[in-house]
Design a protein around this nucleic acid. Structure first.
Lengths: 305, 305
DNA sequence: AGTATTGATTTGTCCAGGACAAACGAGGTG
DNA sequence: CACCTCGTTTGTCCTGGACAAATCAATACT
């Protein structure tokens, strides 16, 4: 049951490593070393796919491929908690123990318990505080657990799905929009993560902005069309930490060129941490800054050069 | 503002056509014919990207690439409504005029009006009938409009996003699960469409089954792990009509091998239209059949040869 | 001591052109 | 009309080379 093998296309989809990368690694480092079928095509055993996933995860953490690919399985396992003690401490300080406890039902695959806990917190904190002080740190904590390999992909999927539902339900309960500005919320083709967008949408909707949620993975040209059709004032994009950071500036500039000047372009999410705003492109680093940017916009300070 | 150009990687992401396909088309048919930058790398002008999107859409409709790629823009435009008169008639018969009217707010980008209409229908019909007689035909109708080029990508995204919210809200209002069987609902890595899964989840939840929604785009190995961790009885996958049909049987067989025998495997959605069930893999062609399969399962007829 | 600069190495992505099997369609036969 | 056969179409994979951007390491400078 575990002896099935995967074609290079499947491995690309399941690991996120492109065919080119898989082949060039094989050429350079000797791993992965897939079998070949009758036609000479690569057939990756399941255990090699698993190892590739681990390597990908460690790379997202900052490790170098050159080291990881020549490491033994033991060395790989030992590498996992790369985080410095100092940073671990600051994390412990920043994240309430309560948040930590919220993860438990997810790790035990108990959807009902999770939802119940969260709904209680929502009722107690109110929507804005719930988003900023519960959902945001919890999502960050889940990301950390993922980096450390302490959580499975399907557990993260379950968390995302359940939390999406909570937020959407909360948004649906708000009075309908019609206000200003009109904000399109979406992400580019490669970016599938949606929780950040939902948090922003919640905050903006609470402030009476008109939110136009287009889901994730929109082609650039379509984003431009949508901005036109909806007479949007702002296009807000989200980039998760997993998004290849070097591509973001180019993408934003390209989209900036496709949009009319009167439309503001905001980019947020953990993926833009290291960027800063340029004329016509506003980089937003955290949730409070979203509200500040909204206030700025309403104050009329959004005129471009 | 429209003179920006796209790298081959961007075109791949935005059109869904692989780099290999883009290059081999250029070699064989002379289209696309991108410019080259200083390093000899392809730079696709925006209008060629647009044309590629049209071609992709027509191909999904059954047209052959060999014809499309040598056609003039005029010929391409004339090709759009390829549907036979007979089939058009049967569509008109099947789809209530009322359904047709529901699309209007979407085409006018009026989210509020759409949600209001739909919530009225939900209240009038009840959840099960709403899913089967409103959401399902409406989604089908949207797909048709997309095939015919009468709807923009971002309009389809808006429809999907708003309808997702309606269904999730409805599901959240149901009494919590805890029943049997335990059903994992998800889709494979390439498949991002989620509406079908939500419709199925709604119906199953109404019947008291315990639904475990993992969202879309799960790697096969993770689906297997999730089935184990959640002690699932059934894994239900959804394939949209846009999913490359030839890959589905292989994927299902591979997943079947990864799952324990006691776990049933269901596959549904427009993508499986031409397939039929095999031992251990149940193909489900429409929503009523989902309920039949559930009844079968509960009746104990799910023992595998 | 800390910071800027320069050079070497790593790494992802692109390219060309060849090959081939699976899917498709046309044409013939029962 | 159904079934088979054969040529054509089409997507995907292959090899191996190239190169620029990112990163690292070592030196020189304030």
């Amino acid at each position: 049951m575990n002896n099935s093998s995967f074609s290079i296309a499947m491995v690309e989809r399941d690991t996120g490593l492109s065919k080119d990368v898989l082949r060039v690694w094989e050429r350079r480092y000797g791993f992965p070393c897939p079998l070949r079928d009758a036609h000479g095509e690569r057939q990756y055993p399941a255990d090699q796919v698993e190892r590739l996933r681990t390597i990908k995860r460690l790379m997202d953490q900052g490790h170098r491929p050159g080291k990881l690919l020549v490491a033994s399985p033991d060395e790989l396992a030992a590498l996992t908690p790369k985080r410095s003690p100092k940073r671990t401490q600051s994390i412990k300080a920043a994240v309430d123990e309560t948040i930590e406890a919220l993860i438990e039902p997810i790790r035990q695959h108990d959807a009902g318990a999770y939802l119940q806990q969260m709904q209680q917190r929502l009722a107690r904190q109110g929507l804005q505080a719930f988003v900023q002080d519960t959902v945001a740190p919890l999502t960050w904590r889940i990301g950390l657990a993922w980096e450390e390999g302490r959580i499975e992909v399907f557990e993260e999927h379950l968390y995302t799905e359940l939390t999406k539902r909570l937020l959407r339900q909360a948004i649906a309960g708000l009075p309908p929009g019609g206000g200003t500005p009109r904000v399109i919320l979406t992400s580019v083709s490669e970016e599938a993560h949606v929780l950040g967008l939902l948090m922003v949408e919640t905050l903006l909707a609470l402030e009476g902005a008109e939110c136009i949620p287009l889901g994730t993975q929109m082609p650039l040209l379509e984003i431009a069309r949508a901005a036109d059709a909806h007479a949007a004032d702002i296009v807000a994009l989200s980039f998760s930490v997993a998004f290849p950071a070097r591509r973001i500036p180019g993408l934003l500039e390209q989209l900036r060129r496709l949009l009319p000047d009167r439309v503001a372009l905001w980019a947020g999410g953990s993926g833009v941490r290291k960027l800063s705003s340029t004329p016509g492109i506003e980089i937003i680093h955290d949730l409070p800054q979203t509200l500040a940017a909204l206030a700025d916009f309403r104050g009329g300070r959004h005129n471009r050069g």
